[in-house]
Each structure stands twice: as C-alpha cells, then as structure tokens.
Design a protein around this nucleic acid. Structure first.
Lengths: 191, 191
DNA sequence: GTCACCAGACCGTCCGGTCGGTACAGTCGC
DNA sequence: GCGACTGTACCGACCGGACGGTCTGGTGAC
C-alpha cells in the first residue's frame, strides 16, 4: 500500500510541491508561476520562496521527488511480495507503479512537463534514469525491442495524459493497462 | 516522397511556423515568445504579428499545420502505393509518417508541447483526431488493445523525444521503428 | 493613390526575485 | 521567572525586466 499522506500533506515543502503539480495540470506547464503555486498552496510568494529559493529550485525538487517516488514505490511493492523477484516481476511492478498510481498522486508526472517546458536541461537526469531501467530490461529473454516497446507504450499513455492528448475512456484505459501487463510477461519468453 | 520546401520555406507564414517550432525545441515550450519566434525567423515582431494577430493564433496555426500535414502525408503515401490499401497497410503508412519524418520536419511535433503548455484547451482538437484514428484501428482483426498499444508506443517515442526524455540512440531508434512496423502487421492477425 | 507587408517604438501587465519586517518558539545567563 | 538574543517560518510591498499586444510610420508593387 501507498501512503505519503494522501490527504493534505502536512509537511510544508511537500504541500508546496503538490500545489505546483496542481498548478501545472490545471493551467498548463507554461503557466507555472510562483504566484500561482503560492495561491494553490494557500501561502504567500514570500513563504514559497522561503522553502524554494528560486523557481529552478522548485522545478528540480519536483523532478527529484517524482523520480525518487517511483523508485521507492517499486522497491516497496517488490519487498511486499517477499523473496527475490525476477527481472520480469520487477518490471511488472514498475509498470503498475507508473500506471496504477493512487489518484492523489496522479499529478506527480506534472514535474516532467513542467521541467521540459521551463528548463529542458533538467531532463538529462530523467534520461539517465530511464537509461538505467532500459539497460536492465534489455537483458530479458524477450530482448531489447520487446521490452522497450512496452516501456514506450507506458510512456505514451502517461505522457499523452499529461499533455491532454489522450482520448481514452477510463474503461479503455484499464483494458490497456491489463494488456500492457500481459505484454510485460511476454518479455520473459525467448524470442 | 515528401517536400513542402525542405530548404528555407519561401512562404512567409510557413517560415514563421517553422521558426516557432525551432524556438520551442531549442528553448523549451515554456519559452515560446513572440520575440523569440520573430528573431528565429529573421523578422520583426510587427512582421510576425502581421501574419498571426496573436500568440493564440500562432499556436492554433502550428497545431493545425501539424495535424493537416500528417493526414496529407499519409494520404500521399497511400496514393503512392496505388490501388486501395487495407486498413493495416494504411496504419503502417501512418506509423511511418509519424516516425520516419524527414529531418527538416522533425520539429513539427513541437506544436503539441507548445499548445499543451500554453493553451491546453487547444488539445481538444488533437484528442478528437486521435479518437478518429483509434476508432478505425479498433475494427482491425487484432482488436482494440493490440492496435492501441502500438499507437501508444508510437506516441511514447514521439513525445519522449519532444520532451527530451528519450534516451535512445539513433541506432536503437531505427530498431524500434522496425519492431513497431512489425507490430503493426500483428494487428492484422486474428487474436 | 492604395494596399499588402513589414519595422520598431511604445504601453500595460505579468513574473521572478529582493528585501524589510512580523510572529513565535526556543535558550541561555542571571 | 525574565529579559536578551537567535533562528525559523512567513508576509507582502516593491523592483527591473520580459512579454503580449498596439500603433505609427515606411516602402515597394501595381
């Protein structure tokens, strides 16, 4: 199970990051302003800048929290299943973390589009983490292509939703998630 | 083959749209400003605003050109192959248009992230077009999930590149495109 | 002339960031 | 206990620059 304070976050820094994610999703990544974040968080701009000395610092913190959060959740879920998991099983948990996010945390990916829009250089960090995951998956029996395609489809769903491009109904979405998890298992088969 | 003036576009409107795409890719979707576009196009702000009365108009035109361009290219390629193509063959051409874009037109997708960042409501148009494509694909023998997953993977690759999230080398990328085209053919098989 | 096309000065607003100040909780000497 | 002092959290007025958009004027084609 996942917690990290589903209901209004008590830690001020976390509350501010939540507010920033909301601001991005509700007004668009191009309208992420300090005033907007402060207003969403119910705090003054001074208060916001007390915790994050600059907008860049805010963006970095958003991205860092997003990435760390995913790894933490994947690790937790793997630990929760006990024993040592195969690479496929770990992949499966990662996909589930990415796509079956708790509703309260659905906004987390906003960090991606905010950083990309405002300070694209920050994305280097993300690419590097992506690369690591990819290299692990390439070692699966199914080979590089098959795993990468599953990962790409996960990205497509996630990014499509963030950019408001995705036209899928919730029912269709859950069918797709199910199909993706099945595709993950296929990565375990020898090509 | 694809043309639409590979070398510096002669039509002023098109040149300005090209410049806007470049501005987005080089500085990030959040830094798409009229001044930047004008500078990239080698024109004054007045000149830019003569062709696009407002920033919103520019964004709309970018998006419209992007969408229309894809449909035009798909239609051209289908026509080029002569006879009536099956749904699978058309799907195949669409994937190739989306992923094997002429280098000069690689920037076209910038319209997506620019609109999403600056005026998310414009994305409704894109969602609707996406929906249409999706409904056609759902009728394929492979069923909804299989086609949608391929489309999602295409999105993942495309959007990942636009957001600078994609860590794939050119060599890996072409392997992925090949694998995707094979996956398209799988959509023709009965489930 | 006039009309499309363009230049660039200009204006009001917005945005990131600074700064001086307030509130309050601790804590240390006495 | 009590006053002096320190550190943390926060407020909000303010500044300079950037940005979207207006306006005036110019230039070349016809």
């Amino acid at each position: 199970m996942y917690f990290r304070n589903p209901i209004p976050n008590s830690l001020p820094r976390e509350r501010l990051l939540d507010a920033a994610e909301r601001a991005v999703l509700e007004t668009g990544a191009g309208h992420l302003t300090l005033d907007a974040v402060a207003k969403f968080a119910g705090v003054s701009k001074g208060g916001l800048l007390h915790h994050f000395p600059s907008k860049d610092a805010l963006l970095e913190a958003m991205l860092e929290r997003y990435l760390k959060d995913i790894e933490t959740q994947v690790a937790e879920r793997c630990a929760g299943r006990g024993g040592t998991l195969t690479a496929i099983e770990q992949f499966r948990e990662r996909v589930r973390v990415l796509l079956e996010q708790h509703p309260e945390r659905r906004a987390a990916g906003a960090a991606l589009i905010a950083a990309s829009a405002d300070k694209p250089d920050l994305m280097a960090h993300c690419r590097a983490e992506y690369r690591e995951v990819l290299d692990e998956l390439a070692a699966l029996p199914g080979g590089f292509e098959r795993s990468a395609l599953v990962l790409l489809a996960v990205d497509g769903l996630l990014l499509g939703e963030l950019l408001r491009l995705s036209p899928y109904t919730p029912e269709e979405r859950s069918r797709l998630v199910k199909a993706l998890l099945k595709a993950v298992d296929q990565c375990g088969r020898i090509q």
